[in-house]
Computed example of a mutant assay.
Amino acid sequence: MTLEILTSDTLAPIRHGFFTRRGGASSGIFEGLNCGGGSSDQAEIVGINRARVAQAMETDTLIGVHQVHSADAVVIHSPEDGGQKADGLVTNTPGLTLTILTADCQPVLFADPEGGVIGAAHAGWRGALDGVLEATVDAMVDLGAKRGRIVATIGPSISQRAYEVGPEFLDDFMAEDPQNARFFANGKGDRYLFDLPSYGLHRLRSAGIAEANWTGHCTYSDPARFFSYRRSTHANEADYGRLISAIRL
């Protein structure tokens, strides 16, 4: 099966892709294109999957970071700069391919094509709340991007209908800004449903960039195409695959 790569007109003409799980070599609960080296999948199989992604991106090296749900973004000048603890990465070095791994959290790809600067961010609820999206934009500006030229697309993420949270979760967001109540809907009992992509779009647009959008794909609701941490938890599975998103300058 060939790879399925979702793209955004917003990021054109920069080469990029939000890869689904289709077209990979993994089997079992990881069936498809599991690109997570931190999973319990066979390392050589993950390597095959990542090689297929690299080939699709026409690159020899996929550069990522050690994602820790932080608000930190780092500058990548060469492949050796990968692997740092961070959740955003940016570069203005031609030929480098930046990647993010997700399984419900938001993969966000950024570009200022005119300025020759790109970025990528892993934005779960904690990272988004703490400012990883703004940190990525700021790091791009430091490399010469113009805030008013930067565009961003949020890839496949868990949607509001599938993201049930407790009252303490709501409290964290209300403490940051009472207006955040608009990203929550009432669920069963004392539970709420959180709209992570809409919150991500709000943070991106508030950062003053030119354009931000979401591809509209829910990771939880489409098991044939996407891995989902929450879905695997509900199914009592031992582990879960990781989706990869990539952008190349």
Rank of each mutant, 00 (worst) to 15 (best):
G148Y: 03
L170K: 11
G187Y: 09
A135D: 02
T136R: 02
T136A: 04
N180Y: 06
Q160V: 11
A175K: 15
G189S: 02
L143Y: 05
L170G: 02
D177R: 02
R147P: 14
D171T: 10
G144E: 13
I154R: 00
G144F: 02
E176R: 09
A181C: 05
E134L: 08
R182W: 11
V151W: 05
D142W: 07
M140I: 10
F173P: 11
D138I: 11
G155N: 12
G189I: 05
G148A: 12
E168T: 01
L170I: 11
L143P: 09
G155A: 13
M140R: 06
A175G: 05
I158H: 03
L170C: 04
L143A: 01
A139P: 01
P178M: 11
F173H: 02
A135V: 03
A145T: 08
N180G: 04
A162T: 15
V151A: 08
V165W: 00
F169T: 00
Q160F: 00
E134D: 10
E134T: 15
N186F: 03
F173L: 13
D142P: 09
A139M: 11
N180S: 02
P167Q: 12
E168M: 02
I158V: 15
A135F: 01
F184P: 00
G144A: 08
V137F: 00
P167C: 08
A135I: 04
S157P: 07
S157L: 09
R147C: 03
L143H: 07
I158M: 12
D138E: 14
Q179D: 13
P178V: 10
E134R: 14
F184V: 08
R147Y: 06
L170R: 07
P178Q: 14
E168H: 04
V151T: 06
P167R: 10
G155Y: 02
A181S: 06
V137G: 03
G144D: 11
F184D: 07
G187H: 05
P156V: 15
A135K: 00
G189R: 04
E134F: 04
A139N: 06
D142E: 14
S159W: 05
I150S: 01
A139E: 10
A162V: 15
A185W: 08
L143F: 07
V151N: 03
F184G: 06
D172P: 01
E134V: 15
P156I: 15
G189A: 02
A185D: 14
T153F: 05
K146D: 04
G187V: 01
T136L: 00
V151L: 05
E134K: 14
F169N: 10
I158E: 06
F184C: 03
T153Y: 08
G148I: 15
Q160W: 01
K188A: 08
N180Q: 08
Q179K: 02
L170T: 03
S157F: 01
G166S: 13
A152F: 00
T153P: 00
G166M: 08
E164W: 13
A145D: 07
M174C: 09
M174A: 08
N180W: 06
F173A: 00
K188R: 10
G187D: 10
K146H: 14
F183Y: 14
S157R: 03
I158G: 13
N186I: 12
G189T: 04
F184I: 12
S157C: 10
Q160C: 13
V151M: 07
V151I: 07
S159A: 14
E176Y: 11
Q179W: 00
V141C: 09
S157V: 09
G148F: 11
R149Y: 11
A181G: 06
R149D: 10
E164I: 04
T136S: 01
R147H: 09
F183W: 10
